[in-house]
Amino acid sequence: MYELENKVATEKLTDITSDERIHRAQGIGLFYTQLVHGISPILTHYVSSVSSRHSVVVFVSIKSLPIGKVSPEERFLFERVKPKEMIFRCIVRHGYKDSRKEQETFEEMLVNQLKEFVRNEDGEEMQREVTLIDHAQRDGVVYLMGKSLVMAKDGSKLVKKLTIDCLYNWLIKQNFGEFLSNNIGRKFLV
């Protein structure tokens, strides 16, 4: 609910991208969020705390699908958040039978698919942007994530509270922890 109620407005994103006081750090910043639409407030929290943003920003949402396998070329769905800016949204899709231990690392797959997305866009800036993504990857990828918690509504029955507040959150934590250790295992800021 916090992410939904505090989504960043387009005007605020414009302020962040045009503010010369905000340092442009080299590298790629992967902001993990549950939001599929809108900009997570984790960006404004990060920028206000660090007074910096990465040269390439990707908002990543991980979604499990009720199908066995998702082909590698359909795993990453990208969209540009703001025209002429290196800010993207990526939905990472996994099926229930997909191996979480691919030959190529998660980071490599994501960046390669991002470059492919940029190549397929119309515009003369495409090659410059692909080069910028290559340089940003060499400079390093930083994983930024907030902590979300699902809670039963006030007044819910005890069984529902125990199921959601305890069991569900524990299962999410176990599954997300497994995903992180199998696919990423590098740098994290929370």
Rank of each mutant, 00 (worst) to 15 (best):
E11T: 12
A9C: 06
V111C: 01
I42E: 07
L110M: 05
K12M: 03
S48P: 11
K69A: 08
P41G: 03
F88G: 00
E79A: 14
G95Y: 02
F59G: 09
Y96T: 04
N182W: 10
G68K: 10
N120G: 01
R89E: 10
L65T: 11
K157Q: 07
G177D: 02
F88C: 00
I172R: 04
I87E: 03
R93F: 01
S181D: 07
C166N: 07
K97D: 07
V50R: 14
E73P: 03
V141D: 00
K7T: 13
V47M: 05
T33K: 10
E108D: 12
V118A: 03
K63H: 06
Q127G: 07
T105Q: 05
E116R: 07
I133Y: 00
V58R: 08
Q103I: 06
F88Q: 00
G68P: 09
Q137V: 04
R75H: 00
L30R: 02
E124L: 11
I67N: 08
T33I: 02
E20Y: 05
C90M: 09
K69I: 13
T14L: 04
E129N: 13
V56T: 06
F76Y: 10
I87P: 05
E102A: 11
S64Y: 06
I91V: 15
F179T: 00
F31N: 05
I164W: 03
V56C: 14
H37C: 14
L158I: 13
